[in-house]
Amino acid sequence: MSEATSSSQWLQQDFFTLFGLHRIYALNMDDLDSRYRGIQARVHPDRHAHLSDAERRVAMQWATHVNEAYQTLRSPSHRALYLLQLAGRPMALEDNTAMSAEFLMIQMEWREAVDEARHAHDIDGLDSLHRRLVREIKGRQAELGHALDAPDYDQAEESLRRLMFEEKLLQEIDRAIEAVEA
C-alpha cells in the first residue's frame, strides 16, 4: 500500500516546488510560513482522523514530508545546504580544510570566552556572548545569501562552513547557559 501512496508526484518534487517557490536563498519567510500552513491545513492527520486507514496513512506521510520540507527551508543553513545539493554541489560536512587560519583563531577566542563565562557561572556574560554571536550569524547569513543567489558557489560554500561553525558555537553557549542555570 505504501507503494501506491508514494506514487504521488508531489512527494517526489523538490521542497521549493512543493511550496510553489523559486529555487533561491532569499525567501520571504512570512510567505513561506503561510504556504506551509496552507498545505498543512489540508494534509495534517488531524484533518483526516475520521477517514479511512488509507487516507490517514497518506495524511501522515504528507504531513511528515511537509514538515521536513518546511524545516529545511526555514533554517538558513539547511536551506543553503539544500540549494547546494540541488545545484549538484553537495557539501561534505566533515571537511574543514577550507577554513582559514584567521577564522579558526577567532573561533578559538570565542570558545575561550564561553568557557571562562561558564566556569564563572556568569549568566549575563553568556547572555551577551549569545547576543553578539547572533549578530555575527545574521551578517554571515546575508553574505551566504548573496553568494548563493549570485550564484557564486565557491564563496557560498565558504560562508556556509563558517556559518555552521558559528551555529555550533551558539548551541554550545545555550548548553552552557542551561548547565549554569540547572
Binding site: M1, S8, S52, A54, R57, V58
Partner: peptide
C-alpha cells in the same frame, strides 16, 4: 482505495 486517497491528497 490507497491510490485514490493519494490522488485526493
Amino acid at each position: 482505495t490507497a491510490e485514490f486517497a493519494a490522488r485526493r491528497m
